[in-house]
Design a protein around this nucleic acid. Sequence first.
DNA 1: ACGTTCTCGATAACGAATTCTCGATAAAAG
DNA 2: CTTTTATCGAGAATTCGTTATCGAGAACGT
Lengths: 226, 226
Amino acid sequence: MRLAHHDIPEATLRRLPIYYRWLQETAATGTVHAVSCADLARALGLDPTLVRKDIETTGIVGKPRVGYPLGDLVAWIENFLGLNRPKAAVLAGTGSLGSALLGYGKFRSHGMQIVAAFDIDSEKIGQTIHGTEVQPLFCLSDFVRHRRALLGLIATPAGAAQSVADLMVNGGIRAIWNFAPAHIRVPQGIIVQNEDLYYSLASLSFKLEHRMSVTPAESELYVQNN
Amino acid sequence: MRLAHHDIPEATLRRLPIYYRWLQETAATGTVHAVSCADLARALGLDPTLVRKDIETTGIVGKPRVGYPLGDLVAWIENFLGLNRPKAAVLAGTGSLGSALLGYGKFRSHGMQIVAAFDIDSEKIGQTIHGTEVQPLFCLSDFVRHRRALLGLIATPAGAAQSVADLMVNGGIRAIWNFAPAHIRVPQGIIVQNEDLYYSLASLSFKLEHRMSVTPAESELYVQNN
DNA sequence: ACGTTCTCGATAACGAATTCTCGATAAAAG
DNA sequence: CTTTTATCGAGAATTCGTTATCGAGAACGT
């Protein structure tokens, strides 16, 4: 029984990439050819039923007493999450974080291709960082429009985040991955995912002080969303 | 009616830093002296009742028709999350991401002080990055032990993450903030928070393809946890 | 001074996510 | 060939988080 895609629980969506990574690593060893939900659950410290429900959500069907063929399952989740379909992305801000992002080679194998980088600093414009030339910020909107980029990464200082987001939206971006420690506002329908280290640090700080006993189950989860 | 600290819902803990940031920014303008939960809700696009419940959880008491004194509320949440109590942290891995982390000046004002950086690359050892000298990795355990560091940041390549985590645990670390795209296993009681960009990218990829209509309410949330 | 309005705080209803339970099926063992 | 065992898949029950509702009290307008 297949669910409509928009009915995928947020929590499940957070866990699928975790399964994916583990399955990929396991497949890489080449020694295993089928996995059960119980295997996954054991390895990741999660409830077996929870894992089964998550896998079931993706629509793949397994065999009793065997589980799922490992290769099939990896490919299935990859396709389900869209990691095998390339999406063009642009980056704004080429400071230390922005540069680091340009260096993440495996973004490409996860479906994201950073096709351009932008900065406002004339010192940086024209430089090449990890193979990508830095362009002036005022070109961003047009570039997004003509290249039909779907995804915009913001790695600017907080103060510039909102105006950069506006430029992206103006060019017709569909989703923004925001690394700036700032709150950005976008029109309805645009997806924003914040990767805000200060938010993350704050909850870590709390847990640290209160020694929140994190069970193995929780111990693998959660995604900074928008 | 005060809740025990370990009963704070994870979801609330994810939202408190968001409130905190907005309150701080609002306080900085100097024009407002009291805020209501309704104000917060309006500004952040959340349900007013939800905000009220979250604020209530922290135990502060407000006044009908007025709300909360802005300064008090900021200080209260700051104290509640522990942002005002400094915690010593060590960093492992001084590649582009590690360097970027050393440059995040505001970590200190959020209660985290990176007191040492470690790397295995002899080229990097001895260098000073943003004022912190890079030490050889084999010193990590002892340093953590003697300095009683509570928090360890891992910004190494995936392959090194587990062994570095082991070193930290060995030195008596209490929490690990893991930026490496790898799964690390630690003994019960150690807090692990993963800041895994590939996990995050995967769910973003899915949402992008399925145009998941993100309501304003969802539009502000979620934290990559461990 | 008095009523109105706004907001806190608490309780109740609702919905989503997780966990529990069971039946069906395929492999393995006897 | 039959029994046992491990696993999927579906549905029920439970827990947890969010949303709705209501009463009480403080500022404001008249």
